[in-house]
Design a protein around this nucleic acid. Sequence first.
RNA 1: GGCGAAGUAGCUCAGUUGGUUAGAGCACCGGAAUCAUAAUCCGGGUGUCGGGGGUUCAAGUCCCUCCUUCGCUACCA
Length: 521
Amino acid sequence: MSERPAFYITTPIYYVNDVPHIGHAYTTLACDVLARFKRLDGYDVMFLTGTDEHGQKVEKSAEKAGVPPQEFCDRVSARFGELAEAMDFSNDQFIRTTETRHRVSVQHLWKVLEDKGFIYEDSYAGWYSVRDEAFYSEDELSDGEGGEKLAPSGATVEWVEEPSYFFRLSAMQDKLLALYEDQPEFVKPKSRLNEVRSFVSGGLQDLSISRTSFSWGVPVPGADGHIMYVWIDALANYLTAVGYPDEGSDAYSAFWPADVHMIGKDILRFHAVYWPAFLLAADLPLPDRVFAHGWWTNEGQKISKSLGNVIDPFELIESYGLDAVRFYLLREVPFGNDGDFSRTSFVQRCNADLANGIGNLNNRTLGLIVKNCNGAVPKPNDFTKEDNELLSSIDNLIEDVRAHMDNQAFHKAFETIWQQASAADSYISVQEPWKLKKTDPERMITVLYVLAEVIRQLAILIQPIMPDAADKLLNGLGIGDQERSYEYLGADYRLKPGTTISKPGVIFPRLEMPVTEGTSE
RNA sequence: GGCGAAGUAGCUCAGUUGGUUAGAGCACCGGAAUCAUAAUCCGGGUGUCGGGGGUUCAAGUCCCUCCUUCGCUACCA
């Protein structure tokens, strides 16, 4: 085991009844950036993602596709693996709930909960619509012409009862409220904590956690015909991945409890209420934080399959390049808020910050060095006040960036970094090295050195969000693979004079604005 | 209906415990420069801080009220 501090971050496991879309890419990207940041910052990181593969919908979809459920899962799960590859995600594991290790883990967790008295058998009853495959509560129903009950969809419903095991969620209310009180950052953003608190304050009903009406799931130990129903099965993946039920394993002792469960706001309750309730009941340590991010709209429209405006991450990468896609998604919108995806804002953002910003800064600086310093990093003379101001602000930048990253405030972290790129542009305009070439070549050398050093640190800092572009920038400055962690930020590892510099290529291509469509609707 | 959040520049948003002429980025306009992917730099605000009332020497910031928008209000994930 290493001496480094551990950091465990998870995405939700994605349901294989769906194909990968921008929402999946977004959640996992946020985790990827944080995971990469933490690795560079000296942490031993476990970054987990995967797929949720059980349930009636999967069973039905497989049937429809004419393949066994497992084969269906293999097929769809692979698509999420392809997304991870296309997005250059650095996950350490890809868990699937159909794996044996997960069955063992979740059955063990079940038994623990049962032994501690949190599980009991009863029957689950309600108004069920066969057509909608869903239960409805009494107040959602309306009366049909023949006196029968109708669902909001207009489908007829019938009263059904099936035996089911229940989890005593109702017994956890006080403990949960105490959790939100004692650990107010357990749920972020804060508005989500308010929602959760108000939900729990209103009282909790016990949770039905098994089914007998279908069979694609983890069998309930010692209860023939029962399979586990979604929550315990799905959420327990976070434990499985680090070795549970072997609480003495290296992975478990290093990584549990998780530091951040990253989720979309749609599954907040399950992570902020059910999950800690299960863990409290099982006497297991609780994760530090559940972060619920917002949703994307597409050009102002709500995204839905029926509207046909789903954003395909593969297509985006194809159109704009991976660096731009990764950057835009986490820079454009305050993380936690909903955001609107638009081609115009995409192109504007990427051109302004990437092509015209860091890309241009790199190009003009290295271009001047190649032309005027024999293609090598020059040896600087004494730094002036202006030089020291620029250098010291970038030497200390990691402090602010780290604080923002620890709050999952990605947009602020990047804003902080880009402010320095902007400061470097101001600096180069004031110093005018292209004029110094004739008037004071020694001074020119120092100015170009300062600029190149700023680029070195900027490139190190942006590795988490744009690993590929950062790699190109660092290669351009001759920075070796072993000199790219955050240890190498600051004044102690300044750029080495003499390093060969060649004419820079275009790292951030300028994107074309989308053709404006006619104003007619 | 109940609970909660929010309404600040054309757009997206910052505005600590109330305290000098309300800020940033983008967009826009003007000027400069020409090393660079025609990129960059400097300057420029045109805001009834949702409406109304109140507390205060002083309110975007506190109180009341009204309007608008959004979220949550349990077993699809």
